[in-house]
Design a protein around this nucleic acid. Structure first.
Length: 374
RNA sequence: GGAGGGGUGGGAGAGUGGCUAAAUCCAGCAGACUGUAAAUCUGCCCGCUUCGGCGUACGGUGGUUCGAAUCCACCCCCCUCCA
């Protein structure tokens, strides 16, 4: 049994490369984790996800507890076996659904009660139950239940929310220590919206509780890139350098590049998969919408030099046609391509940090994509 | 030749006197998507526009009416059945 651990290999400014060790394998950081909410990275075979370069996937407490149910997955051998992904899995706690399903839930000190979006049945998700579910799933890295409020939010509301998440962090850790098996890890989540005093209070108290990794939650929720980077600028330097830092739910390639430069080690985002299903593809020159009329007769692939079949072996005209015709393969190919693009980006960032030339890489990235990265 | 039904915006198809530049769907054009209630959602979609409007428009012509896609007359075309 490999104990959970994190080793930093190289640094370049605030950025660093490293490896997270888990019982199911190593995670090269900075890492991008494809999102497999309901036990599948939508429109992808697990082996193809791995082939893009993913070391770890994200799964979801809320969706899996509703269907097929955490106990059933446990009875079937756990989530890894269930979805045929033998490598590490990180599970979200359901905290994001506190925001995204705000119309279907009720928040109390005890926890969150949801009316299932599937059949309306009521479920109570407490910090303890969330940990229990994540243990039943067999998640290698678990998240504490938290409240993820959208920005803008008034200071006093953000403070109350952040402190509730802190109390839930303590309860989550207690439950985790009772239940988890060796090799699993539970991360605490820093909240506090875009208020420096709240973020620092959250960080300090979370570190006092003590976690093997710290997530930054409640960003990319409406504040914009510049504001998100401002929060990272004042929060990241205070985070434990020896522990992985996970920026939850982020983001666009430009967001990731900027956050890596500020010392973030882990990311997840639905964007490459969702946008891929919706016809958007990231290229070295930035994102394109494959359904645009100009691609109808474009014989070039998305990236002729790529080692990803989806990027290299199909013309834009063909991809355009698949989307216009509503064919599944279009969504499959663009998802595949986008996931590969993201993993390629992470590999390039790691290589740049290891070579101590991240600033050059970012300048080059900005020049070719036109992205604004402060 | 007779009887009946019908011709509406790129397509399908509502509408049967004013609330109609005309529902809805599709096609088309563009945009959004950040710890996934998302193979989803939003906007545009006759022309011109200084975005307030202006012009033209529901097979054709003429008429009734303050007002017609809607009522009347004739004409043209399409479909079904009978001969």
């Amino acid at each position: 049994m490999t104990a959970f651990g994190f080793t930093v290999h190289a640094t370049d400014g605030a950025a660093r490369t490293g490896v997270i060790s888990t019982q199911r394998g190593e995670i090269r950081t900075p890492a991008f984790m494809p999102v497999g909410t309901a036990g599948t990275v939508k429109a992808m075979f697990p082996e193809d996800v791995r082939a893009t370069g993913a070391d770890i996937l994200l799964g979801n407490t809320y969706h899996l507890m509703l269907r097929p149910g955490a106990e059933r997955i446990a009875a079937l051998g756990g989530l890894h076996r269930f979805m045929n992904w033998p490598r590490p899995i990180l599970t979200d706690s359901g905290g994001y659904q506190v925001m995204s399903l705000s119309s279907l839930r009720k928040l109390t000190e005890e926890g969150v009660s949801f009316a299932s979006h599937i059949d309306g049945a009521r479920y109570l998700l407490t910090p303890e139950r969330s940990v229990e579910i994540q243990c039943l799933l067999g998640a290698d890295i678990q998240m504490q239940l938290d409240e993820c409020p959208a920005i803008p939010i008034e200071h006093d509301k953000a403070a109350a929310s952040m402190r509730l998440s802190l109390r839930w962090a303590e309860r989550s850790k207690r439950a985790f220590e009772e239940r988890a098996t060796p090799g699993q890890a539970l991360f605490g989540i820093v909240q506090g919206a875009n208020y420096e005093d709240l973020r620092l209070e959250s960080l300090e108290k979370l570190m006092a509780i003590g976690f093997p990794g710290y997530s930054i939650g409640g960003l990319a929720v409406g504040e914009g890139r510049e504001e998100m980077f401002r929060v990272l600028d004042f929060a990241a330097p205070h985070m434990d350098k020896a522990k992985p830092r996970y920026l939850m739910g982020v983001g666009k390639p430009g967001d990731i590049v900027g956050a890596v430069a500020r010392g973030v080690d882990m990311f997840d985002c639905v964007l490459p998969t969702r946008a891929g299903r919706h016809g958007q593809a990231w290229t070295n020159e930035g994102p394109i919408t494959i359904t645009n009329a100009r691609f109808a007769v474009d014989p070039e692939p998305l990236n002729a030099a790529s080692d990803c079949p989806a990027s290299r072996d199909y013309s834009k005209a063909y991809l355009h046609h698949l989307f216009k015709a509503g064919e599944y393969l279009g969504a499959m190919l663009l998802t595949w391509h986008n996931l590969h693009y993201y993993q390629q980006l992470m590999a390039e960032l790691r290589a740049a940090i290891n070579a101590a030339r991240l600033a050059d890489y970012i300048a080059e990235f900005r020049a070719r994509t036109g992205e604004r990265i402060l």
